[in-house]
């Protein structure tokens, strides 16, 4: 529980942060909320030589609507996303998901950008970002969510590239996120999200593979008029989740089907 030695620098602008990352190269990590990174460092599973703290960069915490898009700054905290009227009015599923991340302490510190850049398959935002075709904006480019979550903890981000915001479509129709877990503050064993948008359904799954999953087969089945119960059976199509202490692969696939059906049924 004692991290290895590391250097620490505090950036006040994205440019400065990027330069610092250039300087340290592969050995550096960006520190935002720190709720994934710091525990890994305390267990010495991560031993970065340097941390670049971006918490002092002004403007990265903004949440605003521009046209039909909801822009969520990389430093927007879960608690702010959860409480934001802008989010509640324009993408209520995101506000609800934010309220289900961790506990109060995690929500007070953890950030949108941190969760997305960390690309943990058990993270909740990546599922929403992927199924809604969100865009991940960095200091260098804009990356489509479908191209961003490449593998477990793996993204196309370059060494000196920093996520600055995530841009979601506005969607305030029927929606539901069901996060199945043992304890209130746990990661999802499996999560299922349903969002009615542009007349169709978007379905996303959390923690059923190395990346978030968009359940296209379910969406298509619904589109072609299948009953919810039948369509939800497709939620496990193509899934190959790994087992862990809490759930076997078969159980995760089963949960994906059950939770998908319930999410669509309960979407309001």
């Amino acid at each position: 529980m004692i991290p290895a030695a590391f250097e620490y620098s505090h950036a006040t602008s994205v440019e400065e942060a990027s330069k610092l990352l250039d300087k340290y190269g592969e050995d550096a990590k960006v520190l935002a909320g720190g709720h994934s990174l710091i525990p890994l460092m305390r267990l010495r599973l991560a031993q970065p030589k340097a941390l670049v703290d971006i918490n002092g960069i002004k403007g990265l915490e903004n949440i605003e609507v521009k046209g039909s898009k909801l822009h969520v700054g990389a430093l927007a905290r879960h608690v702010d996303i959860n409480n934001s009227h802008v989010v509640k009015d324009n993408l209520p599923i995101l506000a609800e998901v934010a309220g289900e991340v961790g506990d109060n302490q995690v929500r007070n510190m953890g950030t949108m950008g941190g969760v997305v850049a960390h690309a943990d398959a058990a993270g909740d935002y990546p599922t929403i970002a992927l199924m809604l075709d969100a865009e991940v904006v960095t200091n260098k480019r804009t990356i489509q969510a479908k191209d961003f979550f490449k593998d477990l903890f793996t993204t196309p981000l370059a060494v000196n590239e920093i996520v600055t915001e995530v841009v979601f479509p506005v969607a305030n129709g029927p929606h539901k996120y069901i996060k199945f877990r043992r304890r209130l503050f746990d990661w999802a064993i499996v999560g299922a999200a349903a969002q009615k948008m542009n007349g169709g359904w978007r379905i996303g799954l959390t923690n059923v593979g190395p990346t978030p999953v968009r359940a296209k087969a379910v969406e298509d089945a619904l589109h072609s008029g299948a009953k919810v119960e039948e369509a939800a059976q497709h939620a496990s199509d193509g899934l190959d989740p790994s087992g862990d202490l809490r759930a076997s692969p078969e159980y995760k696939k089963h949960l994906a089907r059950v939770l998908t059906r319930r999410a669509i049924e309960q979407a309001g």
Partner: peptide, 16 residues
């Protein structure tokens, strides 16, 4: 040991 942190060893809280 597979449960060497409190992420894996499930101590419940008052919430549960």
């Amino acid at each position: 040991m597979k449960t060497a942190t409190l992420t894996d060893y499930l101590v419940p809280t008052a919430n549960e």
